[in-house]
């Protein structure tokens, strides 16, 4: 519980930093820190594979590409944020917050869930469900990634 509180506060603080920082690289680093803290949260919730993949894919690959693009373009000054988007975003966030509060107040929260089998969240159980129950979504997702790769290559060639 103490660990969860620390991680929760850290993730909220870093998420706020992502939005409030004026420097793009600072924002990106705060986002990377947020992703890392969320990965640790996954580790504490009996989901080690998801946690490690979170670091590997989001913090290690996607954020690096974002940083790469920022470094190549090197934006010195950021364009002013239009007030309309600011309000819309804040309204959407507030609506989501109220929705969560309503939903959580309806159901009593209990810390004791059903017992979790030992293999839960391990590589074997995730592989089992990926290749049996969720074989079709898994394959569809890989086709989607392939389409994205081919699309990227085509776009890059057209510009030449």
């Amino acid at each position: 519980m103490i660990l969860f509180s620390i991680l929760a506060v850290l993730s909220v603080v870093f998420s706020l930093l992502v939005v409030t920082q004026r420097n793009v690289v600072h924002s990106a680093m705060a986002l990377a820190a947020t992703l890392f803290v969320v990965a640790v949260l996954f580790l504490t919730l009996n989901a080690p594979v998801i946690g490690v993949l979170q670091i590997l894919v989001y913090a290690g690959a996607i954020m690096i590409l974002i940083l790469f693009v920022i470094m190549l373009l090197n934006p010195t000054s950021i364009e002013a944020r239009p007030a309309a988007w600011w309000t819309l975003g804040s309204l959407a966030a507030a609506a989501l917050f109220i929705q969560f509060i309503v939903l959580l107040s309806r159901r009593p929260l209990s810390s004791a869930g059903p017992p979790v089998p030992d293999s839960f969240g391990g590589p074997e159980s995730i592989a089992q469900s990926l290749f049996t129950d969720f074989a079709l979504p898994f394959e569809v997702a890989s086709v989607l990634l392939l389409v994205a790769i081919i699309g990227a290559v085509t776009l890059a060639q057209r510009q030449r």
């Binding site: 594979v49 590997l56 913090a59 790469f68 920022i70 590589p123």
Partner: peptide, 26 residues
């Protein structure tokens, strides 16, 4: 002793890029 040891190694290896990217930019 992690049952995801190899994945952990690659996750940490993927983080090692930050040092040089951030150092270079800063």
């Amino acid at each position: 002793n992690l049952n995801i040891g190899i994945l952990y190694i690659f996750a940490m290896a993927s983080l090692s890029v930050y040092g040089i990217v951030i150092g270079a930019w800063a």
